[in-house]
Design a protein around this nucleic acid. Structure first.
Lengths: 209, 209
DNA sequence: GTATGTGAAACCGTTCACAGCA
DNA sequence: TGCTGTGAACGGTTTCACATAC
């Protein structure tokens, strides 16, 4: 790995390459060139080579990249060759969908706890998990070694739940609310705000009439 | 509006400003400076002024921006001062959450139809909407003047559903599957892929030990 | 005095083009 | 020969700095 600062956008594309390499592997393709992968991903071939170049040399000149090998290397770069323990707050429609399908999406992610404010939902069984009260968050997060907190509630209590997660010692938060969380700088937050995506879609539709 | 090409990333930030201006308005704040808004949004003050500069002059020198007025102007720029009609495919956990809360999130968006492949779900009432079979998509999308299609199903049939939407004449797609849709270039697609967000979070956590 | 609007400068990311290697 | 890896050129975005206006 080089000492230059790696742009976040390059890492973002790495996740894109990972997805498409997994698909190519499923289809039985063994080797792919930067041009081939670039075509599938909708980017410039040189960009793929540059992005990979931040982390090492994974190809063979005159040949290309071995699909399985490159897929593995990227997963290793992204830190997906370990199991990440997640905890969810908010077992509504969205939260339930996450609980049920997380294992499906990637072997690396496992929900080990789920919390709710609504007393009616506490004790519910969703997938493998029993829904606990938010009061129990700090203890369970510590006991179960949760590393990533997922917030899938309405915007109103989002900040408070984030604070709870911080207090309990999680290192990252995946935030599904449209709220910008105020968090210590050593905590990593990724926001999934589809309402802003929708707004951008409308802008583009409005531009072209 | 100026004739220079407006960077997509500037529009993305516009949606951020819109969110925070709405919050400031709710709190009763009447005027805000680019420095004040920048602090809240976590960007550089000059960037806000530049971004706004692409679309016109909205501030008063020596004073700042009127919160309500700027919020309105940005909504107008984004094309949110009209009602957008959406149709959903996939009334699972995620889809149900969208149907129930869309009106909540912004007055501009209304779901006018919802579709399912699963016969068990057809005929279900979710919010104001009766779930219809995918077979009826083309007719209903045309009859109800749907402009934006929302795909919230598993990855397997995502491309096929996208093709249906294209055939039915929608102009934009909000895609919640991790599949990269192949669509005609005049159709606008926005992807909401939280699995990639999660991967990026893991990368950052892995970097800092 | 204060904060916007905007050219100019600095910075960063993308693409080119080719040396290097299988 | 063919494709990777990478310095250099290019283009675009961010930030600075100040003239301008309230």
């Amino acid at each position: 790995m080089k000492s230059v600062n790696i742009p976040a956008i390059a890492v973002q594309r790495l996740t894109l390459y990972a997805r498409n390499l997994a698909l190519l592997d499923q289809k039985g393709m063994e080797v792919v060139s930067s041009a081939g992968l670039a075509d599938i991903c909708g980017v410039n071939p040189a960009q793929i080579r540059k992005d990979l170049g931040y982390f090492g040399q994974f190809g063979i000149r005159g040949v290309g990249y071995y699909v399985k090998e490159l897929a593995y290397e990227i997963r290793k770069i992204l830190g997906l060759e370990k199991e990440w323990r997640l905890a969810l707050v908010g077992v509504g429609n969205l939260g339930s969908a996450l609980l049920r399908h997380a294992q499906f999406l990637d072997q690396s992610y496992t929900f080990v706890a789920a919390f709710e404010r609504d007393p009616k939902r506490i004790g519910m069984q969703v997938g493998q998990i029993t829904v606990a009260p938010v009061k129990a968050l700090k203890r369970l997060v510590k006991d179960k070694g949760v590393e990533i907190g997922v917030i899938a509630i309405g915007p109103r209590w989002a900040q408070q739940v984030a604070d709870e997660f911080v207090g309990a010692g999680v290192r990252g938060i995946l935030n599904f609310t449209p709220v910008q969380l105020r968090c210590p700088s050593d905590l990593h937050v990724e926001n999934v705000d589809f309402t802003r995506m929708l707004d951008m879609l409308c802008y583009r539709l409005t531009l072209n009439q």
